[in-house]
């Protein structure tokens, strides 16, 4: 019994090393003075200097952020409507609707992205930021719906009835009660939608137009073209820190929600 426990413990430690080692090593070597990926010679910020003086990186970051913001807004509004409809109304065909919401989450992203591209070309829609945003949102709406709906399941609707008995009409009830009470759930879903959009590669890759690049697209094209390089390490480290920052926000929003 003791032996099994010891074995399991060591095994777990190795799994954790397996999980963290690649990123830790990548981060370490992004601060390496030499171009080498094998020997750490001295601490240096020169690779960061290189990427931060590259306007393409800044433009891509800017694009990622604003695309993410628009996608978040669209998917929150639409996802909220769908989640409200599903949680508050009973109607025939709900199982079909459930399937329609679940399919975007199950279907392999690459077929979704390519089909969208096929339609854009078929309909002569010029590729660019707009087509990217639509591509992200089509997927994120489903995701936001699923998340919001799970959260709304525990929402006590009598607070809305209470507001009605106190003289609030339907709109006042929605804006003064429903939205504020759900705010943490919406915030969490929104941050998730933003993260999904911010990190997305495949749909961006296929639906973007000439010259419009996001951060993952830059990482992808230089990794696919030139493999591992120290400046790409630096860029990835930068991107990782943004991802982690957002994850922390999301966790906080969820904690706050549980507190209510």
């Amino acid at each position: 019994m003791k032996k099994t426990n010891l074995f399991l413990m060591i095994f777990t430690v190795f799994v954790f090393i397996f999980l963290y080692a690649p990123m830790v090593i990548m981060v370490i070597f992004s601060f390496n003075e030499a171009k080498s990926l094998g020997v750490f010679t001295a601490f240096s910020l020169k690779w960061y200097e290189k990427i931060f003086t590259n306007t393409e990186v800044w433009v891509a970051l800017y694009n990622s952020v604003w695309v993410g913001a628009v996608v978040t807004a669209v998917s929150i509004v639409l996802g909220m409507m769908m989640a409200l409809a599903v949680t508050r109304f009973s109607f025939v065909g709900k199982p079909i609707l459930d399937a329609l919401i679940l399919i975007p989450i199950i279907i392999p992203e690459i077929t979704e992205a390519l089909s969208l591209l096929v339609m854009y070309v078929f309909l002569n829609i010029p590729l660019g930021p707009l087509t990217v945003i639509i591509g992200h949102a089509a997927f994120d709406v489903a995701f936001v719906t699923v998340v919001l709906r799970a959260r709304m399941a525990g929402y006590d609707r009598t607070v809305e009835e209470a507001a009605r008995t106190l003289g609030a009409n339907e709109l006042q009830t929605f804006f003064r009660i429903t939205l504020p009470v759900m705010y943490p759930a919406i915030l969490a879903a929104g941050l998730l939608a933003f993260t999904l959009s911010f990190d997305d590669l495949i749909k961006t890759l296929f639906t973007t137009g000439p010259g419009f690049k996001t951060l993952p697209l830059i990482v992808w094209s230089s990794a696919a073209r030139g493999g591992v390089s120290p400046d790409l390490n630096a860029l990835s480290t930068f991107a990782i820190s943004i991802s982690l920052l957002f994850a922390v926000f999301r966790i906080r929003a969820e904690k706050k929600m549980r507190g209510v």
Partner: peptide
């Protein structure tokens, strides 16, 4: 007449106080 125009007061089973 809709609820909000009836000038009634109501205390709910689980109180339904506004948590925010």
């Amino acid at each position: 007449v809709p609820t909000h125009k009836r000038n009634i007061g109501m205390v709910f089973q689980h109180l339904a106080l506004f948590p925010h």
